[in-house]
Nucleic acid binder design. Structure first.
Length: 423
RNA sequence: GUGAGUGUAGCUCAGCUGGUUAGAGCACCGGACUGUGGCUCCGGGGGUCAGGGGUUCAAAUCCCCUCACUCACCCCA
């Protein structure tokens, strides 16, 4: 049997209500905060991701779905949305019509990783980007948006918000130097992974999970001590805005993000409820990215929400939303009644009744059993007897009562069904 | 890419140190109740025991290989 590709999965009907809950809550909230939906393509030129994520990042080095299209171009299925959003923003010169561009996106991302709990090769992100302003109140607003989303979803208490500043193009390199110097002195004591990180992305050594590394790092330089005056003030103001809103967060000077393009404010929403994958949403400021991919020098900030992981948190709650219920089930007995019922079903559906009908010659018992299974509150019974009399039976399943009504009175029937379903 | 674990019905699993027709619960279909659901009782369909090879009189069970899935490392949402 042909099965789905590894790391790619179906989202079955019973899971859909939770997905819709997340999507709808997010859309409403994003729009309330002034963001417009912008839909980006699945495929981009490979170059876009190489330039934005950095050549040495794991995503670019080994996780991208990259191939040659028929024209010979190297193209890549997007592993994240920010680069594409920035590209679209620049390509359409949206900065001409408005100094600040606030956009959101929802869709699948692709990374060729080994799947495990909370990690798939095709996964979904909700993505929020604000292009144009370098302003602490904007940073605080973006973080507050994320905080509000999880409070609305009633899972904020399952998460922790961590914030840090990575510095700007002035002070970040200086910190990097200081860190490299320190790591050079202790390199023997580092785990093999950190030996490698030291070469490729030294900041990443800071959040190594290895206990021995964390001990060695006790005396590592602290980024907050290396921030320039501007960055320090910027972070101070951002945090002050968050404090004034009462957003709960912790400052984590060891928080570094995996992607190269981040500057200044970075943040992560993590959880301990999802196995080894603890990041639920994450983002930060990327003031140099737009220039890096060949555009104008426009400061920006954004974040991405892992939808599967968020849905998994929602599943921790017992108040799961149900799917859309039916109004009624149409049970039919006999060939003539089936023909008549087929037309009746369409008439009722045109009137807005959510109706499922029987399609196979089955006993009334079997049809009622199915009506019960799909939780239809009402069953319309139309058999040869009713047809002969020009009537039909409407049965209220919860009450176990039923009444006979004239077949011709469609308006009356619709009104009756709606009234019964309400009660 | 590395490591570990697990593969028996649609789902969750039992099947002891090899022993005859491979089981249960749930789900599905039907009957008891010829046209009235849920509860109960009874019955039914559904399995190349992941695949291949080996050991043996005999393999779901032991050995080897392959594949798949899961978890973890790595990385990240």
């Amino acid at each position: 049997m042909i099965k789905a590709v590894k790391g790619f999965r179906d989202i079955l009907p019973q899971e859909i209500p939770l997905w819709r809950r997340v999507e709808e809550e997010a859309r409403n909230l994003f729009e309330a905060f002034g963001y417009s939906e912008l839909r980006i393509p699945v495929l981009e030129k490979t170059e876009l991701f190489k330039r934005s994520l950095g050549d040495t990042s794991d995503i670019v080095e080994k996780e991208m779905y990259t191939f040659q299209d028929k024209g010979g171009d190297s193209v890549t299925m997007r592993p994240e949305a920010t680069a594409s959003m920035a590209r679209a923003y620049l390509e359409h010169a949206l900065y001409h019509s408005d100094p600040v561009g606030k956009y959101f996106f929802f869709g699948p991302m692709f990374r060729h990783e080994r799947p495990q709990a909370g990690r798939l090769r095709q996964f979904h992100q909700l993505d929020v980007e604000a292009f144009g302003y370098l302003s602490p109140s904007l940073d605080a607003e973006v973080i507050c948006l994320l905080d509000t989303l999880y409070r609305r979803l009633n899972i904020r208490d399952l998460t922790t918000l961590e914030i840090n500043s990575l510095g700007c193009r002035e002070c970040r390199p200086r910190f990097r130097e200081a860190l490299l110097e320190f790591l050079d002195g202790v390199k023997e004591a580092l785990c093999p992974d950190c030996q490698r990180r030291r070469e490729r992305n030294p900041l990443r050594v800071l959040d190594c999970k290895e206990k021995s590394c964390q001990e060695v790092l006790q005396d590592a330089p602290d980024i907050s001590q290396h921030l320039c005056q501007d960055c320090q003030e910027y972070q101070g103001q951002t945090l002050a805005y968050l404090d004034s809103l009462g957003v709960e967060y912790t400052i984590n000077p060891r928080l570094v993000r995996g992607l190269d393009y981040y500057t200044r404010t970075v943040f992560e929403l993590t959880t301990t409820h999802l196995g080894a994958q603890n990041a639920v949403a994450a983002g930060g400021r990327y003031d140099d990215l737009l220039k890096q991919i060949g555009g104008k020098d426009i400061p920006s900030i954004g974040f991405a929400v892992g939808v599967e992981r968020t849905v998994m948190l929602l599943e921790k709650r017992r108040d799961l939303p149900q799917g859309t219920p039916f109004h009624c089930y149409l049970a039919l007995l006999g060939g003539e009644a089936t023909k008549e019922g087929f037309n009746l079903a369409q008439k009722l559906r045109e009137k807005g009744i959510r109706l499922e009908m029987n399609h196979q010659p089955k006993s009334l018992k079997a049809q009622l059993r199915r009506a019960d299974k799909i939780k239809a509150p009402l069953v319309i019974i139309l058999g040869e007897e009713e047809l002969a009399k020009g009537t039909l039976i409407v049965r209220n399943m919860a009450k176990g009562e039923q009444e006979e009504r004239p077949l011709e009175d469609l308006e009356g029937l619709v009104g009756y069904i709606k009234k019964e379903v309400e009660s």
